[in-house]
Amino acid sequence: MIQKVSKKIKFLVAVIGSLLMTSVSAFGMYGVDGDDWINFLVHGNQLRARMNQLGFTLGNGTIKGTFGVYADQGWMGSILSPSTTENNKVDFNPTLSAGIGYTSDMFGIGVGYNFNYVDKYLQVHTPTLVFNALNNNLRIAAPIQVAVTDKVNGVAGSKFTGVGFNQIELRYYTGIDAFNLIRLYASYKNGTWENGTTKNAIETLGLQLRLYFLNTQVGNVAVNPYIRIEYHQALKGNYATLDQFGRNYTLENMYNNYNNGANAIDLNTQKQSDIYDVSPFYVAVKPILSLAASSDIVSLYFEPGLGYAVTSQKRKEAGSVQETQHYLTWQAYAEMYVTPVEDLEWYFEMDVNGNVNGQQGTSANANLSPVLFETTTGITWYLPSLN
């Protein structure tokens, strides 16, 4: 048995190696979030090319692998580009991803790895464990991020240490239409800057729960409502924008946005309770209606939703006003799949919502109408199994 598995692994490595050497269009699939890796073990063989990812997954009924690049910081744009900080150098822009997994009727297990190049002094490493059980009805993806440098922006003795996890996810399909799916996410990031005797830190925590229920068919439409509950909090550091609580707020975001400890808390002189009555938090409850319909060629998926959100950042300093704000949030998310033949698919995604800040919290769209189309599109070519 061990010899057979060994032969399969050697065969898979040989196939991946030949693809990398002969085709520049074979790239990776997965980002640094657990949500990116959660379906790795159930994905069939495919080559995917979208605005934010280029990649393949290849294998047989037992062993599978993946390799390539993914844009965690926005749309892909480029893989290599001229450096913004050094002359005659290049920056590697996307996340490099690779992974290998084992699947069987009893369980599946896999390991993934993501590499982010921030600059020549700092890189972010994200190993990920993926596990499936109960006929793939139970799925777990656990990424852990680590980033360390003793030369922040090239300054010797200026240290940054970042640890965390981005959307550790547990997903369970119950098999009961009345309460058919549970998705639980947990995110945590801790960044510490040291420069001489100065020591600053930022620490955030995020939790999200999705409960799907009443999965039913109404005419030709599949209906599956769910409740989305989110809680995010700044455990250390000064509140800046809600984006730092978002699930896409990685260690790279933290480092770039708060370089050298700006907006962080001084651990030598302050505690979080010295600044705030309650650490800044964001809470949201969003009932969402998922709708799906399909024909032989086109499949559509929609998520209209409304929600209520509260943020708080009440400071203790003299003259500070109560900074509790209430929002009525909304969204209209859609996906479309066009399959002219069984093995070739065109995918289109659209997200229309009240986010006027654009992707990753940039201010480029701040003066536009609160209707922002955030889309991705691309193709998927489903490939035969490697037997």
Results as ranks from 00 to 15, higher is better:
Glu230Ser: 10
Tyr226Asn: 11
Ile168Ser: 02
Val148Glu: 15
Tyr231Met: 06
Ile144Gly: 03
Asn137Leu: 03
Glu230Trp: 08
Val155Ile: 12
Thr174Pro: 06
Tyr249Trp: 07
Asn200Trp: 00
Pro127Cys: 08
Gly261Asn: 07
Phe179Glu: 03
Val146Ile: 15
Asn238Tyr: 15
Ala234Met: 14
Asn153Trp: 03
Arg139Phe: 01
Ala133Trp: 09
Phe160Glu: 01
Asn116Ile: 09
Asp243Asn: 15
Asn200Phe: 13
Glu203Val: 03
Asn259Gly: 02
Phe160Leu: 00
Gln167Lys: 10
Ala133Pro: 05
Pro127Asp: 06
Asn114Ser: 12
Ile144Asp: 05
Gly246Cys: 02
Tyr212Ile: 04
Asn190Pro: 03
Tyr212Trp: 12
Ile182Pro: 04
Tyr188Trp: 08
Leu205Cys: 00
Thr198Val: 12
Gly261Arg: 04
Tyr239Asn: 10
Thr198Gln: 10
Arg228Tyr: 05
Val148Ala: 14
Asn257Trp: 00
Ala186Trp: 11
Leu235Val: 05
Ala141Cys: 03
Lys120Ala: 06
Lys151Pro: 01
Asn220Val: 08
Tyr212Ser: 04
Gln233Arg: 14
Lys120Cys: 00
Asn256Phe: 00
Ala201Ile: 01
Gln145Gly: 12
Tyr226Asp: 06
Asn253Gly: 07
Asn256Ser: 08
Tyr212Asp: 06
Leu207Gly: 12
Lys199Asp: 07
Ile227Trp: 15
Tyr117Val: 03
Ala133Glu: 06
Asp177Val: 04
Phe115Met: 14
Gln217Arg: 11
Ile176His: 06
Tyr239Cys: 04
Asn253Gln: 14
Gly237Cys: 13
Phe179Pro: 04
Ala178Asn: 03
Ser158Val: 12
Thr126Asp: 14
Phe179Ser: 00
Gly157Trp: 05
Ile168Leu: 05
Glu169Lys: 09
Thr250Ser: 15
Phe165Trp: 13
Gln167Ser: 07
Val221Thr: 15
Ile227Gln: 14
Trp193Ile: 08
Gln145Pro: 00
Lys120Leu: 01
Thr216Phe: 02
Gly219Asp: 13
Thr197Ile: 12
Ala142Tyr: 08
Asn166Ile: 04
Ala240Phe: 08
Ala156Gln: 10
Tyr258Ser: 13
Glu169Gln: 09
Gly191Lys: 05
Tyr239Leu: 04
Pro127Ile: 07
His232Phe: 11
Pro127Asn: 08
Glu252Trp: 04
Asn256Leu: 14
Lys120Glu: 15
Asn256Glu: 12
Asn259Ala: 01
Phe115Glu: 13
Lys120Gly: 02
Asp243Cys: 02
Asn136Glu: 12
Tyr172Arg: 02
Gln233Met: 12
Leu242Arg: 05
Leu207Val: 14
Leu181Arg: 13
Asn257Ser: 07
Ile140His: 01
Ile202Glu: 07
Ala222Met: 10
Tyr239Thr: 01
Leu211Val: 03
Asn220Pro: 04
Leu214Gln: 09
Asn116Tyr: 07
Gln208Glu: 15
Thr241Cys: 02
